[in-house]
Design a protein around this nucleic acid. Structure first.
Lengths: 333, 333
DNA sequence: GGATATTGTGCAATCGTTTGTATTTTTGCG
DNA sequence: CGCAAAAATACAAACGATTGCACAATATCC
């Protein structure tokens, strides 16, 4: 492995100058910088990140903590984040919380041990507040929250426009003529889900419709939960459902089909997140698209920006767009 | 940040003993080890990975290079690998090649710069041989290949039983009574795809059917390519297609539907990889399931095993299972 | 032209952990 | 009890890059 000392020797200068030249310090002459760069190139020099991290106290690495990596949404966020981090010479260590707080803490400890410069996190659904986050991250580390955030934790937050998204999705159902619209709402400990429920309610009341607590389904955010909620919704006389997730929407769709309801004629469905399968199933599922790749880019960008102590990023809101497909589009009515 | 020196001081011993105690060296007395562990716990010690990496010349990190992280298959491999690495105190740095060689090289350089202990890689489709891999990885780094491997590169390889899988998938179609079965074969520069084509051919010839080069479709492994291949296959009189990927199978399904063919009655389809959407679309898509999570676990396990210089892992073959769904199941014939 | 800025380099310490070798302590045994 | 062997610990030198401070070289000004 070639080191800066090797380069220094070959040029008859000292390691300090080489280091400064390579890191673009204004304290070296243009000509020496060129010479150093050429020598580094020629000799195949690659910075030893471990040594660099040790000396600087920070690694050129950011940790990304997500509930699960194999979720379309999160893997795209990661992809987006990496595309930005790459340009700035940062690597990413990916950690999964598997939706539970203890794994989240474990991940934070690993990252702290690695002296990461920043952490991008979307909270585990089990975490109801951010206390454990603040305890397990040290002062200098930049914390960026995305998607599932706690407003009690300061710092940049990249979120979807959950309120607006749910509002639009619900309004769309109303405009399609559905009369009794339930919602699969998720967990209220999550601000994202709470905002969606609020948007749903606002849409109903703006359009002069009644809000009925009986057809608000809290809890499970997986397909099975959606299936159960869908069945109850149908029992209660709903003719449509807005769901805060596509898996739950899929469950509701399954319930509707089993009960012999035609979708969208008899029963309308709009989900959230625009999972890959949503466009592919029959009937295709309408969904409020988030923009995970873009959110990842924004999160990484927020980290980069925050590296300068003066510049502070606040909340970045990424829009949600209605992708109207078959499950909610009554062509003739 | 508390260091081993702090612990040493508080116990009236030296850092070297603390280091050895914490790393489980047999050279420290049981009682001191206990004392050190307790002090470390009490003082909230966490090893500085950067310092450790620098001194040892190796980081407790493995790099995972995949074409794309947002592919169901790869994100599950990563999940599996992490589940194992975690138990051994290793972290993972994830890199994407975006299917091209230059990004693959870039990733290798980043990883080398980070002195990773190992690299788990599934090659970019653009890479037709492993020369650039060997050039950009240093001697001591353990290289484990999975899924898309080059047999020219020595070391552990975790692969699906591609030959057998394609063989079974094809045989299934034959047994369902399809008479002219095409194949969407992918790129022959990939050994995985080549093996699948071979399995397909073997199945045909074992079952006394003719192999027709006209209905072997090379190239594109995305939906559009499948769509085009599907159309040509139909033109050529095929009544079924075996596809080496689910996205291409989806394209073929789309083509069949557009041409007014009923699936599976008039046209049978079996894909490969069992993507999430495959079970959800209509008709549901039969597919040769790989076991990505398991492959990830095996790859990580191979790395761990290879840490001991004596133990060498060779080739690990993970079976592929036929998931027969609607697209290939003629209930009445 | 000489004193003072300005710019470019060198010196040397440091980050925290690991590990080969030296030294001390303990143990076992005649 | 004394001595050798074994066990436990201490010492000190790395690993490679960074950076505050000192110093040298050059430019600038009156």
């Amino acid at each position: 492995m070639v080191t800066i000392s090797d380069i220094a020797k070959s040029l008859g200068i000292t390691p300090s100058t080489v280091s400064r030249a390579l890191s673009g310090s204004p304290r070296v002459k243009e000509s020496t910088r060129k010479a150093v760069e050429k020598a580094a190139e020629r000799m195949g020099y690659e910075r030893d990140e471990a040594a660099s991290s040790l000396r600087r106290g920070r690694a050129k690495v950011v940790g990304i903590i997500v509930p699960r990596i194999n979720r379309e949404f999160f893997s795209n966020v990661i992809g987006g984040a990496e595309s930005v981090l790459d340009n700035y010479g940062y690597s990413a260590i990916i950690c999964q919380s598997h939706e539970n707080t203890s794994d989240e803490i474990k991940a934070l400890k690993t990252l702290r041990s690695n002296r990461v410069a920043g952490v991008l996190i979307s909270h585990a659904i089990e975490s109801t507040n951010g206390a454990h986050i603040l305890e397990n991250i040290d002062q200098g580390t930049i914390l960026v929250q995305f998607d599932r955030v706690f407003s009690s934790i300061p710092g940049p937050k990249i979120i979807s426009d959950n309120f607006r998204g749910a509002y639009e999705g619900t309004r769309h159902l109303i405009e399609q003529g559905y009369k009794k619209i339930g919602i699969i709402a998720g967990y209220m400990s999550s601000e994202a889900y709470a905002a969606r429920l609020a948007g749903y309610k606002q849409a109903l009341s703006d359009m002069g419709m009644e809000i009925d607590d009986e057809i608000i389904f809290y809890g499970s955010i997986v397909q099975k939960g959606g299936y159960e909620a869908g069945n109850i919704a149908i029992d209660k006389g709903c003719d449509a459902i807005f769901s805060t997730g596509d898996y739950t929407a899929l469950g509701a769709l399954q319930a509707a089909k089993e009960r012999g309801l035609r979708v969208p004629e008899d029963f309308g469905i709009v989900g959230t997140a625009d999972e890959r399968f949503s466009a592919l199933i029959t009937p295709s599922l309408s969904s409020m698209a988030q923009h995970p790749y873009e959110m990842g880019r924004r999160a990484a960008q927020a980290f980069i920006t925050s590296l300068k102590p003066e510049a502070k990023v606040g909340e970045v809101v990424v829009p949600m767009d209605l992708i109207a497909r078959q499950s909610s589009t009554r062509t003739t009515i």
